[in-house]
Design a protein around this nucleic acid. Structure first.
Lengths: 333, 333
DNA sequence: TTCCGTATTGGAATCGATTCCACGCCACAA
DNA sequence: TTGTGGCGTGGAATCGATTCCAATACGGAA
């Protein structure tokens, strides 16, 4: 591997001059500079990252820590994130936690030991706090602490989705949502509750004036969604809102197994927007968070922090309600 | 940040001894060793990766280069890959190419400049060859050159899938497959052709004794799949094989739009096995490559190469044919 | 007792790029 | 002519961990 000193000698200059010529720091005669650059190119010189990192005391590296690399809900954001950080001259190193808080803690510590300059974190554990000064941006989640964060505005989004459902005439609604431990689950639920309250629909197990909103918590899995539907059966609402794409899958499976037709017998709304939501017959009406924008904002927030700028309150990224066929209007009465 | 020399001084030993105590290389008095380790732990020492990399001339870093981070077909493999490499003490740095060959070339060169010790590559460009000695393992694709590779045995898998379809009584079959430029597309197609030939089904546009196999190439997108179906219409086969999950989506969409019922009017088989394949009514019969095993094998191959071992021929990972409801048996005659 | 081999140790050299420092040189002003 | 300032330059110091080397100590053999 060709070193800086080789370039310098070949160009007939000192190491310092060669370094200045290539980096642009400090003054070098224009002609000399061009000669050094030409020699470097010809010899195929590329600086040794380790030596540079050691001297400059910076690694140009950003860590990404997420629960599950195979979950497209996360990776959709990661794609842009990677692009933005790469454009800014940073390498992205990744680690996944498998949704395990202790693995998460270890992985985070490992990254810090690796001297990453910043971390993008999709947290599992609610309020993991590390004794570090490394800038951390949380993605897809607003932490209690006032760390920088980029998250989907699920509250407003699910509110809007629910409101659309109410406007379609539904007043008997059931919501399936993940465990309350996740702030994401809480926010999505709050959006539904807020919309229901505004519409005068009480949170209740039994209908009052034909109106009620029931809430079921379930693990964020296909089976979780299916079981929630099974438990509602046969006292089904007129519209079911499943607040994660996995829960939607479970609900659809259970409806299929029980011969419940969507939307004829049951309207269904979801959260997220994987490709198949729009292919399904009927198309799944859903709130689609803007995952790419979340990734972009996370990158920007982190870069801003690295530049020493103060970051404001967590960025709430608006999404879009996709109205498709799985929620029908009800005939009056 | 606490340095090795700090640990050494606090423990009352020299730098060399401290290094030996912590790394285990060279002999250190047992008592001294324990003392150094205790001090290091107490001070929260962690070695500077840059300094170590500079001295040892190795970065403990592996590059991963793939076309699209948001494509779960790839990321399913990446999850295990990351785990295996992490267990072996390597960091994974990622870059994505957006399916652009020139971006791919640049990203690959950048990784090599970064002194990664090995590269896992999901290639876009057919036969990109770089002047480097860095071990590279190709994932999901067998290159013409004899680089190490871990790929799904699509040939055997699609053969088996097609054979099952033939055994169900189908003799009028159409195959939708991606551009011939991708070796993956070629292999999948070859599997179907081989099975058809064995069954005595000719590749032909017009049926001979009621039997034919038609091939349509389409871009690997939803629209591509839909258009391929549209072009077949109304002369539909009895069974359609769409050799990528995106093509399946497109086919399903087009069938829905045209009122073609699966499987009553048209049997459909696919490739890959995203979650929704099993939820769909009817479930999609498909060949499911073993993505996690591919990731694992890629990691193992790379680690073997790093250990200086010779790697044999490309690892062909068997998958599994999932028989569901989208392909029906035909009544005799 | 003397000598040799082994275990243990501290300190110096090393990895390669950056940056500080000091020097030479030239232009311009006094 | 003599300073003053700035540009351009080479060389040395620096970053922190590892490893080589020489030195010391000690046990056992001759």
């Amino acid at each position: 591997m060709v070193k800086l000193i080789d370039v310098a000698r070949t160009a007939g200059v000192g190491a310092g001059t060669a370094s200045r010529a290539l980096s642009g720091n400090g003054s070098v005669d224009r002609e000399t500079k061009e000669r050094v650059i030409a020699v470097a190119k010809q010899l195929g010189y590329s600086p040794d990252v380790a030596a540079r990192a050691l001297r400059e005391r910076r690694t140009r590296t950003i860590g990404l820590l997420l629960p599950d690399l195979a979950n497209e809900f996360y990776t959709a954001s990661v794609a842009v994130l990677q692009q933005e950080l790469s454009d800014a001259g940073y390498q992205l190193v990744i680690a996944s936690t498998g949704n395990d808080p202790s693995t998460e803690r270890i992985a985070l510590q490992t990254m810090i030991d690796q001297r990453v300059e910043g971390i993008v974190h999709v947290p599992v554990d609610a309020d993991l706090v590390l004794p570090t000064t490394v800038p951390i941006v949380q993605l897809n989640r607003q932490s209690a602490s006032r760390q920088a964060a980029a998250a989907s505005d699920d509250l407003a989004g699910v509110d809007e989705l629910t409101t659309a459902i109410v406007h379609a005439g539904h007043r008997d609604i059931a919501v399936i949502v993940g465990p309350t431990g996740f702030s994401t689950s809480r926010n999505r639920l709050l959006g539904a509750l807020r919309a229901a309250e505004r519409a005068g629909i009480p949170q209740s197990e039994r209908p009052l004036d034909g109106a009620r909103l029931r809430v079921r918590h379930a693990p964020l899995t296909v089976d979780g969604g299916a079981q929630a539907v099974a438990q509602l059966f046969p006292d089904l609402p007129s519209c079911l809102i499943a607040l994660s794409s996995r829960l939607v899958m479970g609900a659809l499976r259970e409806c299929g197994d029980r011969g419940i037709h969507v939307p004829e017998s049951l309207s269904l709304a979801g959260y997220g927007d994987p490709d198949w939501f729009s292919i399904w017959r009927p198309g799944i009406t859903t709130f689609a968070p803007n995952l790419t924008e979340m990734g972009r904002q996370a990158a920007r927030l982190l870069l801003a922090q690295l530049a020493g700028e103060e970051t404001g309150p967590p960025a709430l990224i608006p999404g879009k309600v996709q109205v498709r066929g799985s929620v029908t209007g009800l005939s009056a009465g």
